[in-house]
Amino acid sequence: MAKTMNFPTYSSEEGKKHARNIVAIWFVVAVIADLIVWFVYGPHMPPGTMTDQARGAQFDIKVVSVMAVPVLLFLWTFGFYAVAKFRGGKDRAEGYYIKGNVKTQAAWYIITASLVLFLAGFGTYELVLPAGAGGGEGPSPIWRPSTNKLLQVQVIAQQWRFTYRWPQFGGMETTSINLPINTEIQFNVTSLDVIHDFWAYQLGVKADANPDSNNVAFAKTLETGRFTVRCDELCGIWHGAMFNYGHVVSQSQFLSWAQSMEAQNASVTKLLPKYATTYTPSYLGAGGGYYPAGDPNGTLN
């Protein structure tokens, strides 16, 4: 004779009581977690607060986190509650028989879909607005800072090092980068060979460096400190070594550094081609100078 299985079910009233308990526990835990995420962990979230771009990115991550954490906690709360309350026992070897609930399922779909759609809209909005300007907007940025007082920094990637040109300081080129505080910077990112990526982590700037292309990114410096520059496109044997450190310094320190570098580099600056947003270096394959686009032989310079 077949053994009959015992699957006890909850009454409607019991089910509602459990639902209320789950929601109550989840609500308290989620509020506490969100407060911790926003106020305790949030200020330390990457990429920091050194520029407006970094702060924008940090704000975005905080928003995403405070919306995602309650969803995660709801799943965990339900899971733990189910383990504690719905598990098997003496009178119910297989645990409770839990039936589906159309209203609950619909609510889950609608709430999570709404969250995802909201975040998609929020992310798109933030990409267009200043928070995304550090990501490189191509040669014709759709967003520009309101000020025309911009420090121009050209980032030239080459296998396997970044160099920087400063058109407002005689077109000098340096292997190091310092930036003044409280200044709107326009990064003009390009490459002399393959695709690289200029990732100034703490500045919230990360823009691809493509040959024959000027990828413009903006950031306003707000705090002094050190930042790391890394290449973030696999570009050959020394890709891992293609990094350097820069500093955001006071305006007077920057001016002093820039003028000193301009004087030190005067002799080599004369050898450089005229400043241009892109260069065409590769016509000779090996060696060969780097020239403004449209002047591949360097004869017009």
């Binding site: 080599v268 050898l271 450089l272 270096p281 060696g287 100078g289 360097g298």
Partner: peptide
């Protein structure tokens, strides 16, 4: 020959 990036001179 000429340098691709004269900075290295």
């Amino acid at each position: 020959g000429a340098l691709r990036n004269p900075e290295w001179a």
